[in-house]
Each structure stands twice: as C-alpha cells, then as structure tokens.
C-alpha cells in the first residue's frame, strides 16, 4: 500500500539530512506506528509522504502511484491529519467538510452518509453548523479527522494524533483508526506515546536522527515477552551513545 524507497530529505540551507535513506513498506489493512524522539524526522517523513515537502532522493509510492511523478493521483489516496490540527476556522464544520469533499470529488450522498456516521462516533452533531473558531482543541481535532476521512482514503496519515486529547476523544479516535484499518485500508501515524503504539498497531518502526533503526511486529514482540519501551530505550540509547 505504501512504499517509502530510500527517502532522503534535507531542509534548505542545512547540510544535515533530516531524513536519510529511509525505506519502509506498509501493507493494506494494517495500523503502522512511526516512533521516534523529538526531532528524529517523523514529521519530516510524514510531510514528504503527503506532499507538503519536496525531497531530494528516493520515492514514495501510494498504492503503486508515485508522489513525485503523479502527485494528484497519489494525493487522492491519502487522508492527512496534521499535528497542529489547523483548519479554516471561519468556516462551520459542515462547510469545511463539504469543501474538502468537493476537492476530493466525493458525491453528496456519500458525504452525507459518512458524516452521519462519523459525527455520531465523535459526538459532534450539535456543533457541526457552528464556526470552527468556537471549537475546543479536541473538537478541532475531530473535525480535522472527519475532513481527512470523508473521501475514504486508502492511506490515512496522522501526525501525533493523540497529543492534547482527553481520554474520551482519544478512545473515539483509536476506535475509528481500528475500523478504518479493518476495512482494508492502511493507517500510518507518528507518536512518541509507546503504550498507544504497542496496543493499537500491527507493526511499527523507530526512527532516530533521520535514520531507520528497526521495524517491529508487535504481535511477535508480545509472543516473545518483549516490551516496546525496552526496545525503544535500547535503540535510542545506542544511537545517542554513538554520538558521544
């Protein structure tokens, strides 16, 4: 479903690669966690994947379509929830979702159906016709999620989705993520909350200083009695030790 092939990215004016030779592969129907400490390169990778940042080397294929050579076609397959949940705050929730749906050419009936469903899960029906400016942080996150899912993307990408969410909202979001993956789609999200990744994901990878440190199957880890936290601390500790 998602192939990141030898991705290398550096920012303008910097000689250091923010991401270096990163290659990972995601399957349909799985929830994949993307772990790393602050500044490891998680957001950079995600922003390159969804088309926000250009990258110097490598390629990213979404369902076989290259984000470099066929960006519009690739973007049609992606739904993205940013880390700052920025949305057009002067629009109402309905206007925002309708606008996003129109950009992805989703038929009105499908929009109505999916909205009904997602509004029910997120308990946002009452606020749907009020300006997003009046929403709380959690509500903005939810409307951002609805906007990202309205076209039923094959690949759903979330950047630090659980930051700042209350327990109820976090539970609702995880429920939707599981449901989306169960329908044969792929969910790819970055986080530094290990417990969530451990309980939610099928597989995960750890990135540190822009380089892939390892890919882990969480079912296998559980079977072996190993904890993700131990692995993470060992990996991060080793790579930080290299720099001394």
């Amino acid at each position: 479903m998602l192939e990141i092939q030898h991705l290398t990215k550096s920012y303008a004016g910097s000689s250091v690669n923010a991401v270096e030779d990163l290659s990972i592969s995601l399957r349909a129907g799985e929830i994949y966690g993307f772990l790393g400490s602050n500044g490891a390169g998680k957001s950079t990778t995600i922003k390159a994947l969804v088309g926000i940042h250009p990258f110097q080397q490598g390629d990213i294929l979404i369902d076989g379509v290259s984000i470099k050579t066929a960006p519009l076609q690739a973007k049609m397959q992606i739904g993205y929830v940013s880390d700052n949940h920025a949305v057009f705050e002067r629009l109402t929730g309905r206007e925002y979702v309708t606008h996003i749906a129109n950009l992805y050419s989703v038929p009105s009936e499908r929009v109505a159906q999916r909205c009904e469903d997602l509004l029910e899960i997120f308990k946002l029906k009452d606020a749907f016709d009020t300006p997003i400016k009046s929403y709380s942080h959690g509500m903005k996150q939810k409307i951002s999620v609805i906007g990202a899912l309205i076209h039923d993307p094959k690949l759903w990408v979330l950047d630090e989705p659980l930051t700042g969410l209350d327990p109820q909202s976090a539970y609702q979001l995880k429920k939707v993520m599981k449901r989306h993956a169960a329908a044969g789609n792929t969910v790819f999200f970055s986080s530094h909350i290990l417990d969530v990744v451990e309980n939610l994901c099928n597989r995960c990878c750890i990135i540190q200083k822009g380089k892939l440190q390892g890919v882990y199957d969480l079912a296998e880890l559980r079977a072996e009695g190993r904890s993700l936290e131990e692995i993470f601390m060992n990996v991060i500790g080793e790579t930080e030790g290299e720099g001394v």
């Binding site: 922003k47 969804v50 088309g51 926000i52 519009l72 076609q73 973007k75 049609m76 992606i78 993205y80 940013s82 700052n84 920025a86 949305v87 057009f88 996003i100 950009l103 992805y104």
Partner: peptide, 14 residues
C-alpha cells in the same frame, strides 16, 4: 492561509 497552507499541498487539485 497561514497555518492552513498545508491543505493546498495535500489536496488532489493542481
């Protein structure tokens, strides 16, 4: 567009 500019880059519109 400010912080919402990212939307311009992720949508499937030229």
């Amino acid at each position: 567009d400010g912080a919402n500019f990212y939307t311009s880059k992720i949508i499937p519109v030229g």
